[in-house]
């Protein structure tokens, strides 16, 4: 199955990898294929949901045909949770419900549970063909995905405990839920991706669907031409102008960057579990609409 056949995608990765752009482009791509898509920003900033010219709020807003966005806000999710859970009692409780929100906000794991609860709840309503979540950075995402099981353990009875079961089942259904890790073709980000995958599979019910290698640099030359270029760069023609010599220096940097990207890509491919797709999004120059450009790059990588 391909990435967009799933119903719930959490897009995570270390800071600075461009995960929000990838999340926005993935959601927009799915909407362009006729799906009804919800894009959730869940890392406390407008993130991906804010990339369509509209300031996202806690209620879903349509920003493109078939594409809705919302931003999870802690207080609003807590109020919604208390309202849903307490039913008619919650409406009449007034300050008592306020005090409850206050305690629940401080209780360990409840914030993470509310966040995962909101995402899984939206995926369960049937309103959406696909829910894409622009998630917190790797470490926090692990905590969130593990929250239903952790809370079930520390609050062994009560309503919250009963609510965690279906969440764990949904997160653990690899045909329904997929985790996407966004990384760069560099040593440190790839090492962190591999650590993340190990921890994900060890501590959460969720499974990795894809790794997106962002801002990668495809080889500039086919293998057959490479020796010729390398020879020109090494044995430079005599009496080159400053500009011509500089151009060769710049090309040399480009080749070295592409070589490193290829080597790290090979390492990633060898180390990931089988069945995990690797998608490549090239490094871009100055572009007008980055989400649209990346959307086309992802589309090129997916068999749609």
């Amino acid at each position: 199955m391909t990435l967009l056949d799933r119903r719930l995608l959490f897009i995570g990765g270390k800071g600075g990898t461009g995960k929000s752009t990838i999340a926005a482009a993935t959601a927009s791509l799915a909407a362009s294929t006729g799906k009804n898509v919800l894009l959730i920003s869940a890392d406390g900033s407008p993130g991906a949901a804010g990339m369509f010219g509209v300031r996202p709020v806690f209620d879903a807003t349509e920003v493109e045909v078939g594409l809705h966005v919302l931003q999870i806000e802690r207080t609003a999710s807590l109020d919604e949770f208390v309202r849903v859970q307490l039913g008619p009692l919650g409406a009449v409780a007034g300050p008592v419900a306020g005090a409850f929100s206050f305690v629940a906000d401080a209780a360990p794991g409840v914030g993470e549970l509310l966040l995962i609860g909101k995402c899984t709840h939206e995926a369960r309503t049937g309103d959406w063909d696909l829910v894409v979540v622009d998630s917190a950075s790797s470490g926090h995402l692990l905590g969130e995905l593990a929250a239903p099981a952790n809370v079930a353990e520390i609050a062994p009875i009560g309503r919250i405990n009963r609510e965690t079961g279906w969440m764990i089942d949904m997160l653990g259904d690899a045909d329904f839920t997929g985790i996407v890790n966004v990384t760069l073709a560099e040593e440190v980000p790839v090492a962190e991706t591999l650590d993340f995958v190990d921890a994900l599979h060890a501590t959460t019910p969720a499974r990795l669907a894809s790794v997106v290698v962002n801002r990668t640099r495809p080889q500039l030359y086919a293998r057959s031409k490479r020796a010729e270029v390398d020879a020109l760069l090494t044995e430079r023609p005599a009496k080159l102008t400053h500009g011509a010599d500089g151009l060769l220096d710049a090309v040399e940097i480009g080749l070295a960057r592409a070589d490193i990207a290829s080597a790290i890509d090979r390492q990633l491919r060898q180390s990931l579990p089988t069945g995990v797709d690797i998608l490549h999004v090239p490094e871009l120059g100055v572009v007008d609409d980055i989400v649209d450009t990346v959307r086309h790059a992802i589309a090129d990588e997916l068999p749609i």
Binding site: Q85, L86, L89, A93, V96, A97, F100, V103, A104, A107, I154, A155, P156, I157, G158, R159, I160, N161
Partner: peptide, 10 residues
């Protein structure tokens, strides 16, 4: 409320 949502012990 607290019992319903969290369980009394927690």
């Amino acid at each position: 409320f607290a019992d319903r949502l969290l369980g009394a012990e927690f």
